[in-house]
């Protein structure tokens, strides 16, 4: 006979932490993410140099002890700009995830609970939004309102809504036919209460994993938008914009293109590893395959 299905097992918080820190992906991802977050926080209080001051005498310095990552064509310190730029990247991606979760999860849960026509309508709405890649909506929004960080947030956030709606709906649909839901209905609980008490706690891990994935994608999308000049506007430094400016100077100062790119790669890598780690630890189905 089959062994008791491990997927019904619950982790206590302590055992989750213990397992998580035994997981290589989680540990690396956690360390990188904490470092980046720490760097962003630090930039509010201290940066090696002031990024708003243009010191022409110091322009185009290659990396050295005084300017670890060198300086740009206006003499600004690249390390300081990367530190300040991380704020922008994190803020845009985080708010976009918030928009996506805040609207998408209720929408997906609602569709799964009600079913029928409403479910169909929500899914068709998803199809519609999926037909507009984030960059395309950003282009449209910029065409109307002009460029800016807010528009980037809206464009990426809108794209996140159907992503979370889909994940929440699929997760909820898998839980609804389970016997403990029938038992809750036999205990007279309504669909809203069941969703809050039984569905959400059981899809939280899916949402958490998707959250880190969308966070990483948000960082990449924001970088792309600001590379095109559709994101944060100068003088606010942003990683994408730094790369755009570096492109024209690539012959003379290739290091200018190197460091902001590394910043993006490392941040995204850290978040993806964290997401992988969390899903390894939380999803026993994948764990069994190891």
């Amino acid at each position: 006979m089959t062994l008791p299905a491990a997927e019904f097992e619950r982790e206590t918080f302590g055992s989750f932490i213990a397992k998580a820190f035994a997981n290589r992906s989680f540990v690396i991802g956690f360390v990188i993410t904490s470092l980046i977050a720490g760097m962003a926080l630090l930039s509010f209080f201290w940066t090696p140099y002031d990024v708003t001051k243009l010191i022409v005498a110091d322009r185009m310095q290659p990396p050295s002890a005084t300017h670890l990552f060198g300086t740009d064509q206006f003499g600004r310190d690249v390390l300081s700009m990367i530190m300040v730029g991380s704020r922008n990247s994190i803020a845009v991606a985080l708010v976009a995830v918030g928009i996506g979760m805040g609207l998408g999860v209720p929408l997906g849960c609602w569709a799964a609970a009600r079913g029928g026509f409403l479910d169909e309508a929500v899914m068709r709405f998803n199809d519609l939004v999926f037909a507009f890649p984030a960059l395309l909506s950003a282009v449209m929004i910029t065409a109307i309102f002009g460029p800016g960080a807010i528009n980037a947030i809206i464009a990426i956030g809108i794209f996140n809504i159907p992503v979370f709606a889909r994940v929440a709906r699929a997760g909820a649909l898998a839980i609804w036919p389970r016997e403990f839901i029938l038992a809750a209905r036999a205990a007279g609980k309504g669909k809203a209460l069941i969703t809050v008490e039984h569905i959400l706690p059981n899809i939280a891990n899916l949402l958490l994993v998707q959250g880190t994935i969308q966070f990483a994608l948000g960082i990449l999308a924001e970088a792309g938008l600001s590379y095109l000049g559709l994101g944060a506007q100068p003088p606010m430094p942003s990683w994408g914009r730094m790369l755009f400016e570096a492109q024209t100077l690539m012959m003379v100062a290739p290091y200018l293109a190197l460091f902001p790119g590394f910043a993006i790669v490392i941040t995204v890598l850290g978040l993806n590893l964290l997401g992988d780690g969390v899903s390894d630890v939380l999803d026993p189905k994948l764990r069994r395959q190891r």
Partner: peptide, 30 residues
Amino acid sequence: RGSTADTLSMGAAQIGVAIPNFWFALILIY
């Protein structure tokens, strides 16, 4: 699954996912 080759290629894929295409383009151009 689980071999060194698997770990290496999935590690490479993990990094590949994280590289923004326009930055990769700049590197290729260079």
